[in-house]
Structure formats: structure tokens, C-alpha cells
Design a protein around this nucleic acid. Sequence first.
DNA 1: TAATGTGAATTATTTCACAGCA
DNA 2: TGCTGTGAAATAATTCACATTA
Lengths: 225, 225
Amino acid sequence: MIVSTIMKLRKVLPMKFHKIPNETIQRLPMYLRVLQLLYKQGTNNISSLKLGEFLDVNSWQARKDFSYFGSFGTPGVGYDVKKLVRQISKILKLNVAQKVALIGLGNLGSAIQAYGGFNIYGFEVVAIFDIDPKKIGTKKNNIIVENVSRIKLLKNRKIDLSIVAVPSSAAQDVVDALVKAGVKGILNFAPCHLKTPKKVKIINIDIATDLACLPYYIPTARRQR
Amino acid sequence: MIVSTIMKLRKVLPMKFHKIPNETIQRLPMYLRVLQLLYKQGTNNISSLKLGEFLDVNSWQARKDFSYFGSFGTPGVGYDVKKLVRQISKILKLNVAQKVALIGLGNLGSAIQAYGGFNIYGFEVVAIFDIDPKKIGTKKNNIIVENVSRIKLLKNRKIDLSIVAVPSSAAQDVVDALVKAGVKGILNFAPCHLKTPKKVKIINIDIATDLACLPYYIPTARRQR
DNA sequence: TAATGTGAATTATTTCACAGCA
DNA sequence: TGCTGTGAAATAATTCACATTA
């Protein structure tokens, strides 16, 4: 009720005080990725139309997404690529390097560790935990694999983020430990719903679930029974 | 304009003729996963409230999701778990086993191949392709790894779905080949936007992009500059 | 002239509230 | 009584259209 009143008041205020759609936040990293690539290739200026073409996003969608945070472009000219990169980085709080703890060094955990795609956003895996005694103590990319029982010691290591790549059966215990250790954001790969306090943001990636949507969209399965 | 008129007409028609939200489709595999688990554990009947609790979904959300497709429950009683599993499977076209081709057997591809989570939805990886001569010809889980140049031969093998786990630089070529080979649905892990004809459904999973959203939601990064 | 920025309109999705059935 | 199914209301997100500015 109060929220509703605030929302109505906000309608007379400038764009930047409107509620920001979740979808907008999810698109920002994609803009950022393309813009960084463009900058590397020597493109200094780009229009919302061109930028959108790289991502299958309409020009007005891109402009509106940015407008929630301010006016970053120049009418008649477009956006300064470098400036826009800096602005989006700041919005997403990616302007400071983000330390990440990886939990689980099985097939998926190893793949994530080897994956270089995090670097462009300033993420760095600085701690790895596993439960397998054969892995504990070994080095992976100069990081010593630690026993999951040591997750609680993260408290003193200024790590806000964690990637959970353990089996579903172990996931809730791991998440509980991470929350206790002061981790504020979790990217979870276990295909199950995990309970966290409201202050801890959790984003789930469920590969099988995403795949399971595909057949629905396929006009006619080759031989439907 | 015409679409808008149809939509208005639809408002007087029963629920099942309404447009089905994409979000509903994305929730169906999650209901299915929980229901299968419950059934294995001997639960034969469940209410929308209990079902929702497992997934942090409101009871009315679950009921509305199902209502787009028909009336599967019994007022005052709830849903027959086995019956609901069968209905959702049918809606998602998961009632027939789905063959999947995996492209790319690097770190991520290997992890996907080893991941058992697909089985519950009836998926089976039946073909693997890679570009590395050292991998081509070897066996992985009884499947011979083939050269990517042979993707075009998929045409005769009744495979509708594919998982793409190759570097961004190779992804568009791979997708083009898959489209030519008659693949109808693609789950893409390469962090880039890929062009496909409208009739081919593509779902993207971008791990780094999802991670990049997390810091935004964290109240205050530990030392914001 | 060529682009941005943004109110307003439209469309999509969620939430509510309750009629109706076992 | 307890739970489903669903119109209607509320909320959220996208799309449009255009005033505005370099």
C-alpha cells in the first residue's frame, strides 16, 4: 500500500527514480561485453541502434535501459564507448575487482575454474573448496584446494561472492556455511531450490531445466506419439 | 492491430486459450523435477501450496501455470502426483526420449557429458563432435567423438536438439552447420549472440553474465571506491 | 540532420479474491 | 471444510512516438 503510493509519486519524477526492471540489470552485462569488445577493436562511438544489433535488442530498449541510470549519450552522435563501459561497470559494481570462492571441483567446478569468461567482468577465483581428500591440498592454477569444512574461515578473507558447483545433496549445507561466513552473493549450479536469508542474493543456473524447455518450442517433434 | 483484436476476443474464452507466458514454460521443468522426486519418495498426492513451497513459488502461481493447459487437480484434494508428472511431460514434449548432439568436448563439454541431470527429463547425448584431432575417434561413454565437419550428416539421424559448448569464435559456424543439418533446438553456452532462423529455437546460458549481475544486488560491496 | 531520452500506450505477467466442487 | 480453477485487478516490462538537443 505504502509502496504503491511511493510508486505513484515516482511517476512525476525523472526517469532515474523509477523502479529498475530486473530484465534491465540482466541486459547490462551483455551490453558491457559487446562494448568492451568494440573498444578493443578501436570503435570509440556507437549508436543505440548499432549496439542493439549485436545483441538482438531494439535501439529504444537499450536507450531506456541506460536512461534508468542517467543520460550517457549525446543526441545526434551516440555513445562514447569507453565512457559507457565505465558507467555500466559502475552501475553493476564491477569497477572494483571481485573475489570469488568456488565450491566443488568436480567436472563442472573444474570447467568453471578453467573458463576464462569471468575475467572481462573483473572476477577472480581466489579460493577453492572440495570434500574429496584426494583433491584437498593439491594446487589448481596456483590456488590450494581446501576442505569444505574450512568455508567458515572465509569470514576474514573479504570474499563476497561464491560459485556453488556441488551435488544437490550437499548444496544446502554448503550454502548455509557460506552465509555464515558472510558471503553476500551466490551463483548456484545445483538443480534444486536453496534457502537463503533475504540479504543474500542467489542466482540459479539449471542446465537441465533450460534444456527441458526446448522441445516445447519445437513445432513438431519428429515423431510425436 | 489484428493481434490486439484477437487478444481481446480471447478474454471471453476459457483459460486454456489464453496466451501462455514464457515464464510459465520455464517453471514447468522445475515442477516436474520436484514431482518426480516426490513420486519416488512415495508421495501420491500434493496440494499447490506444498508443491510451491519446494520451489518458492506461490500456490496460485502454480495453479495458474497448470490452468493454461487444463484442469489437472481435484478441488479439496490436490493433484495426483503421477498424473501431473505425465501431464507436464506431455506439455513439454518430454514424453518421448529426446536425442541430443553435443558439440565441443573441452572442459565445459566434458562436464556436461558427465552430468547426469538430463536423464530425468529423458534426454540422451547420442553424438559428440569436436575439432581436436586427438579427441576425434576416441570413445566417451560409448560414443565415438566425431569431427565437427561431420555435423551435416546429422540430417539422417533424427536428432532435433543440440548443446553447443565451443568457444565464441567457433559458435556461429557450428550453429549454422547445425541449422543446415535440421536441428530444431539449441542450448548455447558460448557467451555471444548467435543468429538463427526463426524456426530454430535457441536458449543461451551465459555463466559469466549471470555472475556479473550479482554484485549489483549486494547492498554495499565491502570497500566501494 | 541524426541521434538521444522519456512520457504515454500497449502488452505481459503476477497477484488477488472468490465461486464452485469433492 | 479444504483446495482447485480462473476472471479481474494490480503490477511490471516493452514498445511507441516524438520533443529535444548536439
